[in-house]
Amino acid sequence: MAIINVSIPFRLIKQIEDYSRIVNEILKHNISFNILKFSTTSSGINLLLEVPEDKTKEITETLRSNDIQVDKKGRVILDEDKCIHCGSCISLCPTDALHFTNKDKVEFYGNKCIGCLICQDACPRGAISESK
């Protein structure tokens, strides 16, 4: 299971139905997920969701296309000295935060990373770690 941090701004939740509409948006993919944490901030609602690894991409894309933020804090870091540019992490990344450059080197866009950690245990060089 992957963990994603979802922020729904108040402007999208005018009434309670909006909230269920958003959750339905996720459920439409016919998946089950766990809400690990529910909190509110001055700007909106924060949900920490546990979702199946293989559905993370779909969910992230759906939420984002609905104007909902999926964590942008970037919770992994890539140690470039350890990386051998094999690519074992790339097909796993739901947001293309890890991708190949046109020279086939692996590059990491921290601001695209949602910290789902799907990539971390796939790296055979231990080059991906959770940033504190």
Binding site: K57, I84, H85, C86, G87, S88, C89, I90, S91, F100, K103, D104, K105, V106
Partner: peptide, 12 residues
């Protein structure tokens, strides 16, 4: 989505 396990960068 697919990616390699071997490194094209290093092969080159």
């Amino acid at each position: 989505k697919c990616s390699s396990m071997s490194s094209l960068y290093y092969a080159r």
